[in-house]
Computed example of a mutant assay.
Amino acid sequence: MTNILITGSNGQLGSELKALASHYAQYSFIFTDVDDLDICNHKAVADFITENQIQVIINCAAYTAVDKAETQENLANAINHLAVKNFAQLAKAHGITLIHVSTDYVFDGINHKPYVETDTPNPQSVYGVTKLAGEQAIQNINPTNTLIIRTSWVYSRFGNNFVRTMLCLGKERESLNVVADQIGNPTYAADLAQAILTILPNINNKSVKILHYTNEGVCSWYDFAKTIFAIEKMAIKVNPIESSQYPTPAKRPFYSVLNKKAIIETYGIEIPYWRDSLVNCLKKTRTV
């Protein structure tokens, strides 16, 4: 049986992996979050991996408070970069398969076509800078059987995310202002979790491979919000606004659509359309 360490297991992706775990009897999942295993404590992580004979690490842990990262750079760097570097070193030393989840925020968002894995990163925020540093650390150490999977606009029935925020605000207000000039790919965390477990047994690469995974299709945050309320039959007026009307401490990419051709061709997976996945998520959210 393969022993798999899942970090950040109380987050969106970690929670969706938990929900799928019972369908994968061939794996022994060890789910941890900061209270169980502080990934910033590098010795504790090394000891944990040895004691539990870990063969696969799926690193879902991250500092994702994009705006707070602007003033908490050291903490963001410790989680998104230095802890990731430690995972890569341990993966190389022990022959561990490593899957690390990264972000569209490594790009500047000025592209006119979907980003491919080989496009030059140019992060515009502390969050993006620290996530890119984690990617680069993995690439420099270069453990075998390692994947970096960039994703974007992640949502789930679990945790804090745009979908849950819209549903909460929709119960309190008759109208909402939502940014309409940022374009990207929503990603249902359950789909990403399923994709990770589907490709896991087929990972066989000598050097680090970067892949992109989001749901198919593109939209703005405004489109996303309108669709949420339409599916839920909530009569909320959504007003489109520009990013300049909703200033935030951290700069967001205006266009961060990710090209998924590489992951589809490499592993033969099918990726659901974002609206179909949103329908599935909202069905499950009603029962939470």
Rank of each mutant, 00 (worst) to 15 (best):
V106Y: 07
Q182Y: 10
E172K: 14
D119Q: 04
G95I: 03
H94D: 10
S102I: 07
G128M: 07
T118K: 09
V101Y: 02
H212E: 08
M166G: 01
H100F: 10
A93V: 00
N205I: 02
L169S: 05
H94T: 00
Q124V: 12
V126A: 04
A195S: 11
G109M: 14
W153G: 00
K113F: 09
P123M: 10
Y105N: 12
V163Q: 01
I149E: 09
T130M: 03
P114R: 06
P143G: 06
A193D: 05
K206L: 13
A180D: 15
I141Q: 08
G184H: 05
S175P: 00
A137T: 10
L192P: 00
R157I: 15
A133F: 03
N205S: 11
G170A: 12
I183N: 07
N111D: 04
N140F: 03
H100D: 13
Q139C: 14
A195N: 04
A193R: 02
R164M: 07
W153Y: 15
I149A: 05
T120C: 02
K131V: 06
V179D: 10
V178M: 13
G159C: 08
N111W: 07
L176R: 01
R173F: 15
Q182N: 12
N145V: 01
L197R: 03
N122R: 11
E117T: 14
N177D: 14
L200V: 10
F158A: 13
R173N: 15
E117C: 09
I141Y: 11
I141K: 07
I110Y: 10
E117W: 12
I196Y: 06
V126W: 02
Y188S: 02
H112P: 00
N145M: 01
I138G: 05
V101R: 00
T187P: 00
T165M: 12
H212I: 04
L197Q: 08
T118H: 10
N160F: 06
Y127N: 03
P121N: 09
Y188M: 05
G134R: 09
M166Y: 06
R157K: 15
K131A: 13
K209D: 05
Y105E: 09
N122A: 15
L167N: 08
I210F: 02
L200Y: 11
I199S: 02
I199N: 02
G109L: 13
P143S: 10
P143I: 11
W153C: 04
I148S: 08
T118E: 15
L200Q: 11
L147S: 07
A180Q: 12
G134M: 11
P114E: 04
L197W: 09
V154N: 13
G184A: 05
G128D: 04
F158I: 04
R164F: 00
H100P: 02
I110Q: 14
T120E: 09
A195H: 02
N122E: 11
S156P: 03
A195T: 14
V106F: 02
C168N: 13
N160Y: 02
N160H: 08
A137C: 03
N202S: 13
N202F: 14
Q182F: 01
K113D: 00
R173V: 12
F107K: 05
Q182P: 00
A93M: 07
R150M: 02
Y115G: 00
L98S: 03
V178I: 15
